[in-house]
Design a binder for these strands. Structure first.
Lengths: 194, 194
DNA sequence: ACGATTTCTTAATCTAGATTAAGTATTTTC
DNA sequence: GAAAATACTTAATCTAGATTAAGAAATCGT
């Protein structure tokens, strides 16, 4: 198994020695998640965070009317977890599903804590990762409070140009917060305007 | 100036020695922000994060139609910052305003970095703080995607019972994402239902 | 390769919440 | 402590986006 992409990811923010890399490697698990299989499902207590080697995951909730809401897409080189459940060790409400066959590296909560003890630099790494994630969620909440559905769709296209053609349109609708029907209408309007 | 509340806040997650506390104290600034004054305004490059000793701040944006959207309230013992601007050192779009006379402890970005160098335990502290903040924003985004305005209002009342009576209703409206008129209607309906 | 399932589109109808407007409390300020 | 400013309420009207429904296109499973 080739963990190199993960170490490249670490190297963006911290410098690890060979010894540290070796130790960290011993803490990691590899997993292939087949298309439409789940990494975790709502109601479970989450045990791992995941780094995506290739493929794509999506994190979504299901509301009381049965509608899905996508909280995040995790393509290649992204991190994903049900942070609420992972931190609190209570039942989560996030589902994480593979949109295509997806290879991930898993870090269990227990190993993550061991890693923080042995390699305190990782506290810094994950602090930075989480800071960036926080900024992205704040921005997205602000967009949901202040932009129209059309503006949110155009912004999505700008931010995730690679995803636009790769993922089903109904997933984009569930991410920006509209029905698939309305997104279809928006897209027809965009196409007409050209 | 009494920094004790801040050290109580640190003590929730990490243990500091007297020497460390002394060093940290030398990195802090005290500030009184008068009611309606701003800690930062959109367009500025943010230089500090703030810990609230007493009073209450609110972080809000102003959209292209002039409407305000509240991203966070920071009452006593909370942290607040324009994380985007603080991290990127680019112009931010957050305004942080005092809702009443508010005393804060400020940590400049430069001092924060010095503190991470000298007291690496603080990486852990801020990682944990930011993790919790991330979970809260994810939850709130999910609420905005899946709940009605009425459900969001009732949830706000549950989560921030102390704020309900202390802050203007229009600020609550700007937080949950409705017009003040609609919130007024919701409240009238609630009152009638009792 | 082909039937079955899923996704996407279009269009009519509906509704939660916005907008506009006008009046009534409540604060703030000097 | 009165005038001005701000916050809240109520009600009529409007609209962005939801719902329902039905057909067309794409994808999947065997």
């Amino acid at each position: 198994m080739d963990f190199a992409p993960l170490f490249h990811n670490f190297a963006k923010h911290i410098a690890l020695t060979k010894t540290e890399e070796k130790f960290i490697t011993s803490m990691l698990e590899y997993k292939l998640i087949k298309s439409k299989d789940f990494l975790i499902q709502q109601g479970e207590i989450s045990k791992h965070s995941a780094y995506v080697l290739n493929g794509c995951l999506r994190g979504f909730t299901i509301d009381s009317n049965g509608f899905e809401h996508v909280l995040s897409f995790a393509p290649k080189d992204w991190w994903i977890a049900d942070m609420y459940s992972l931190l609190s060790q209570k039942a989560g409400n996030l589902n994480i599903e593979a949109m295509v066959d997806t290879e991930v590296i898993l870090i269990s909560k227990i190993n993550q804590e061991k890693m923080y003890e042995k390699v305190p630099k990782l506290e810094r790494f994950f602090r930075i990762i989480i800071e960036k994630s926080l900024v992205a969620y704040q921005q997205r909440l602000n967009d949901n409070l202040s932009l129209t559905a059309e503006e949110r769709y155009l912004k999505f296209c700008k931010i995730y140009p690679q995803l636009i053609n790769d993922i089903p349109q109904k997933q984009i609708a569930a991410y920006i917060g509209v029905t698939p029907e309305f997104l279809s209408k928006l897209r027809a309007k965009q196409a007409r305007a050209k």
